[in-house]
Design a protein around this nucleic acid. Structure first.
Length: 573
RNA sequence: GCCCUCAUAGUUCAAUGGAUAGAACAAGGGACUCCUAAGCCCUAGAUUUAAGUUCGAUUCUUAAUGAGGGCACCA
């Protein structure tokens, strides 16, 4: 509809630039304007700033221009538009007709699972990399941020029509891992190794490396053994820990709702990257102080080491190697990688250096970042071992939910299932509701709350929608071939439901699911008001059928929306 | 020191250069013989500072202040 109106306005402007003398200046110039959502209900449903955009060029009052455009528009009546208004400072506001709305509601119900789909990425192949774990390190809250935003964006991109593959890039080789392996050996934990123990070992290893010169040398040796792939007792510990970490990664990401079609390991990327770097001396890389660096300062960036003086690839070489592997193994139009902002500068180097190796690599790769979490109070870092783990966090929220459910008559199995879905929903939503690029201050109370602007609020609204529909089984629920116009006023929520596909698109364009999260909350909130003031299943209401259709359309929208955010749907809660 | 981000109610977040800056939590008040009260209704409360561009700035520019990130062998 937005496109239709935009084109109509465009045509009117063209006509006027030919017929009106004072409008002729426009024939040579491109005019940019928008048809967008009206800011408020009382400003109609869609609004255009076209008159304001033109006013400056024409040297006329925006409101006058708006009136001229509207006068022209009204010469071709459209049954979908009930009214067109002009308002100060020069907006053109459009109001949907009841007929148009009921037609659209029927379309939503017909489309069902496909509702919200767009074709802006039709025919495009994407690969999307997220949730890359550091094996031997626990899955903490930072990973939860990356997973929540990454998974949601992946689903949004698919909804926009792309053929998308998700992959993850586990770090299975690094000096940090050597430190962990050393500590496991030192503590003789190899037999009773657990994920928690591996996490503790990392912290111990990091500390010992800094404090003791002899230990440092020992760890450096272990590191070489691991990089070279040599057999040794340390290697056995490493292999066992790697498998355990990887299983754990797959378990937790599945629990969170992510499946990866491919895993590419850093160890593979390291050897590829290293060779690539060596092959490109001196054209792209240069030797300096025993290491091989990329002279980024030549390109307005900064110099940094790709291959260290021991001859091992740093994470820059690893990401370069990963690019080579991706382009060799997959066919795609775009590769998107999402990481924490602290890696922004890193990826600028990777993209620049990669582009010098092969132009395509830079052009088809996009590196996006999400914000960091900060915590009010003490300093938190994985090296200190005090970062909240995703699993612990989920369990804490579950406890709160169990307490709340005490009075409800659910079976223990039902309670467990509900608590799991709601807990993860609460945490994920608390991350997704703010702009993806912004740093978030993590507030435990807010992130684990289930009242107000939260994931459980959305899940609860859907439970109610389902419940109403179940209640209406007696009433006719098939799609009415000719749904009558509403007798009463159009509820705001009925107009809001149409906006869903636009919001999905916007979330893709901004690479931020928060538009969708905010929209779904507003939609749920508007539904809750409607629900509180209207008895939906009420045979005496002349708008019963309209209300049921609306309920169905809302249920579809919210269900599809939750799916895109990566939140689970529930039958009851 | 150099480079990059960010700064909005008590708190956590929204707002394509446009219409009365919008929510949630916390605070205060209220309704409820009816489809799930994890709900609904009402009240109070904010654009860091100083200049500039613009018909119009929370949004763009510059500076100051504050916070976060990056800047050679961690990722």
């Amino acid at each position: 509809m937005r496109e239709i109106l935009k084109n109509k306005i465009k045509r009117v402007i063209q006509d006027l630039s030919q017929t009106e003398e004072s409008w002729q200046v426009l024939t040579s110039e491109e005019v940019n304007f928008e048809v967008s959502l009206a800011r408020d209900e009382k400003f109609g449903d869609l609004a255009s700033n076209a008159a304001m955009a033109l006013a400056g060029k024409l040297g006329q009052n925006p409101l006058t221009v708006a009136k001229i455009i509207v006068e022209k528009l009204e010469k071709e009546p459209d049954s979908r538009i009930a009214k067109i208004d002009t308002v100060l400072p020069g907006y053109i506001n459009f109001y949907f007709s009841k007929k148009y709305l009921s037609e659209e509601i029927r379309k939503i119900i017909k489309a069902e699972k496909d509702w919200g789909k767009s074709d802006i990425l039709a025919g495009k192949k994407y690969i999307f990399e997220h949730s890359s774990p550091n094996l031997f390190k626990p899955f903490h809250i930072g990973h939860l941020v990356n997973n929540s935003i990454g998974e949601s964006l992946a689903r949004i991109i698919k909804k926009c029509g792309a053929d998308l593959k998700t992959l993850s890039f586990p770090s299975d080789i690094s000096p940090g891992i050597a430190k962990t392996v050393w500590a496991i050996k030192e503590k003789s934990w190899q037999e009773e190794m657990t994920i928690k123990k591996i996490g503790q070992a990392y912290v111990l290893g990091v500390a010992a490396y800094k404090e003791d010169e002899a230990i440092k040398n020992e760890i450096d040796k272990i590191n070489e053994i691991l990089y070279r792939g040599e057999n040794s007792p340390e290697r056995e510990i490493y292999e066992k820990g790697k498998k355990m970490s990887l299983d754990y990664f797959e378990e937790i990401t599945q629990r969170l709702g992510s499946l990866f079609e491919d895993l590419i390991f850093e160890s593979e990327a390291e050897s590829r990257g290293k060779e690539l770097v060596k092959k490109n001396i001196p054209e792209i890389f240069t030797e300096s102080a025993g290491a091989i660096i990329f002279p980024g300062s030549k390109y307005g960036l900064f110099d940094n080491v790709f291959v260290n003086s021991q001859g091992f690839g740093t994470y820059l070489a690893k990401d370069l190697g990963l690019l080579e592997i991706k382009f060799e193994r997959f066919e795609f139009d775009k590769s998107i990688t999402i990481t924490d902002v602290e890696q922004r500068e890193h990826f600028k180097l990777v993209q620049k250096a990669g582009g010098l190796v092969n132009e395509d690599w830079a052009e088809k790769s996009e590196f996006i970042q999400h914000g960091r979490l900060s915590f009010s109070g003490e300093k938190i870092s994985s090296r200190l071992g005090n970062v909240p783990l995703a699993e612990d966090l989920i369990n804490k929220v579950k406890e709160k939910i169990f307490a709340k459910m005490e009075k409800q008559a659910f079976s223990p199995a039902e309670k467990e299932l509900i608590a799991e879905k709601v807990a993860i929903g609460a945490l994920k939503y608390s991350i997704l509701k703010s702009g993806a690029g912004k740093n978030i201050v993590f507030d435990f109370e807010k992130a684990t709350s289930f009242e107000g602007d939260t994931g459980p609020y959305l899940q609860y609204a859907l439970v109610r929608l389902n419940s109403v529909l179940k209640n209406a089984q007696g009433a006719q629920m098939e799609i009415e071939p000719d749904l009558k116009e509403r007798a009463g006023e159009i509820p705001l929520v009925e107009k809001m439901v149409l906006q869903f596909p636009w919001v999905v698109e916007k979330s893709f364009l901004d690479k931020s699911p928060h538009h969708l999260a905010n929209y779904l909350f507003k939609l749920s909130s508007e539904f809750s008001s409607f629900y509180a003031q209207t008895k939906i299943v009420d045979a005496a209401n002349p708008d019963l059928k309209n209300n049921l259709m609306l309920t169905k359309a809302l249920q579809i929208t919210l269900a599809n929306g939750l799916e895109l955010l990566g939140l689970e749907k529930l039958e009851k809660m």
